[in-house]
Design a protein around this nucleic acid. Sequence first.
DNA 1: TCCTTTTCTCGTCATTATGACGATAATCCA
DNA 2: TGGATTATCGTCATAATGACGAGAAAAGGA
Lengths: 226, 226
Amino acid sequence: MSYPVFAVTVDLVVLTVRQGELHVLLVRRGCEPFLGEWALPGGFVLAKEDLATAARRELAEETGLDGPGGHLEQLGSYGEPDRDPRGRVVTVAYLALLPDLPVPTAGTDAAEAQWRPVGKLGLAFDHDRILADGVERARSKLEYTPLAAAFCPPEFTIAALRQVYEAVWGESIDPRNFHRKATSTPGFVSLTGTSTEGGTGRPARLYRRGEAALLNPPLLRRRLDG
Amino acid sequence: MSYPVFAVTVDLVVLTVRQGELHVLLVRRGCEPFLGEWALPGGFVLAKEDLATAARRELAEETGLDGPGGHLEQLGSYGEPDRDPRGRVVTVAYLALLPDLPVPTAGTDAAEAQWRPVGKLGLAFDHDRILADGVERARSKLEYTPLAAAFCPPEFTIAALRQVYEAVWGESIDPRNFHRKATSTPGFVSLTGTSTEGGTGRPARLYRRGEAALLNPPLLRRRLDG
DNA sequence: TCCTTTTCTCGTCATTATGACGATAATCCA
DNA sequence: TGGATTATCGTCATAATGACGAGAAAAGGA
């Protein structure tokens, strides 16, 4: 019995929050196809490599982003027959949420790398769709999990956490109600004991990410129902 | 440039509710490897076939289940190097939710097919894990979407819908509170105008699935928090 | 020093959603 | 006709949320 032959790649939707806006990491392609165009970072899965391992390797290799914290999860697979002109390629997309770090360094396959605000970007392959799916996944995950903290450094203020929500959801949130919700939901955040200093306004207490895997009850965004 | 060669399969977690219990569709393997063992239905993706198309084809071919209603979505991909003794095989798992239909017919690759209550089944490959992920996805989706109706025939009673929740979540739900919730959440269900007849007890009104993609507010199961 | 600005933190109150459960309605069956 | 069964509606206490007032704790300028 014989069956078709495929290549398998991983592609990464790497998101961060900079200056109050949700950004995605893009690389300019350094080889065919789509040479010179912007795309999600990614590459082929090696012969004896697990999918998640390949995703972590590409994240480190191609972006140099391998700091503490952060979050990596599988997003989904994309395998339309014509999605890659080189032949039959199935890509497994991963979603990474990272704190705002220095400008990434370009890697082997990528001539350049840069953060871009999410939106309508004309990316190579079917990467616009993968990006849209990743952004929607991130928006949704912020409702039910404490993952917003993955966008923050290890210690952060409630205001910083709120700004993550505002950036990812694109809506403003009442600081007082958010403070109540974040500090009263069990396992969302935990106090460090230290505070900020030197900033403008009253110093804020610093928190760490809590141990909960799910927010209970969740933190729902306002739905525009029809 | 050369890169490793893979085979790509789709595997299906087909769930339904029978006699108040969540069941999964299994097939007995008719060829090597794992000949004679129970596994999720699935097969190789064809040369010019989209992943979702392959999933629908396998669902129809191998199970004969292609009725109205139901729901099919991508679950995730599994690609550990050793998961298939034949070589490097990545599988894209799909989750199908179907109303309870007559016993499926065996297909080409499957010597037998049968519904089994979900639980610890010693399945071939890594199918136990895929099944567990599928069940967890289904449980979670029932909270935030009107997808419970995918387990029901096109017209159903509120009690039937409630029994879906009870079976999938494995907990009992107050019929009066559930009735209020189902009928008051916009877009969850819509009246047909007809009622059941001939059953025991007061006749129940029949409903169809509503148009909403998301339940707002959601219908959360009781969390056993630690 | 004292006042203003800024941001954090804590409260209050009305509204909504939920869990527990009583009560009535509408059918079948003996 | 009366009992069993299930559907549907209502009531009430509690929990969660949105809107917003007000004090606390810093920096900076007059």
